[in-house]
Amino acid sequence: MNSLFSGKYTWLHSINPSLKLLTILGLFILAINIHYLNFMVGFSCVILTLFIFGTGYSYKQLLLLSLPFLFVFLSTSSSMILFGKGETILFKWAYIQISEESLIRGIHLGFRALSFAILGLIFALTTKPVMLFYSLMQQLKLPPKFAYSFMAAIRLIPIMIEEYQIIINAQRVRGIEQKNHLLKKIERLAIPLLSQSIRRAYRIAVSMEAKRFQSNRKRTFYYEVGFSRNDLIFLCYFFVLIGLAYLLSNHYPFLPNTDVRYLSD
């Protein structure tokens, strides 16, 4: 969420949110169709570069935000490395079998998960939810009743988190038995939290209609979200650099360049 950390306002903030979202979705689809490790690494570097130099956050903040990624990388790749199919066995112990193919595939998956995570973070760090939904209404014709519902719900997030902590305390005071199993405990927390949330949401919807909100009626917009030259730069950045990464990975592969999918059956 934007409010967790504050960074400088950069050109990435000024990109049209709908365009940013669609571009990132496009990159996602591209990424799951990359099956060669060299290109995958190149692709990840392109995204990482934008993350480090484009988001306007200090290196310390970025480092803090990136810590979970190491974890993402390791955990995503490990099960494929340890249990994936492959012919060229490098190491074998009990059920664990590391083959060259599974090792490469595991590393490939790690990079893929990493680039997804960073793409998502780039978006989240440089996009105000309100602007996103105004843009979705204006550029992608999202019906206002969905857009304003989302904005209202996002406003409730800090209120819900605070309430969640109060409920935990309140139940502790009541002497909730520690021997209850986990699901029972979660349910006891979830009931007050959900019932309060339902009531709140309902009341907000009623008050919105009391303020003459009608989804199907024409409306004006307080924020008009358009396009600028930065949008073009944004698109070019990916086109050019990913193209470059593709060429380089084909001509100067520094890692084994085979299809990571298990093809020989």
Partner: peptide, 9 residues
């Protein structure tokens, strides 16, 4: 309820 009559931040 002051917390449930607004939809914007």
């Amino acid at each position: 309820d002051p917390d449930t009559q607004f939809c914007m931040p």
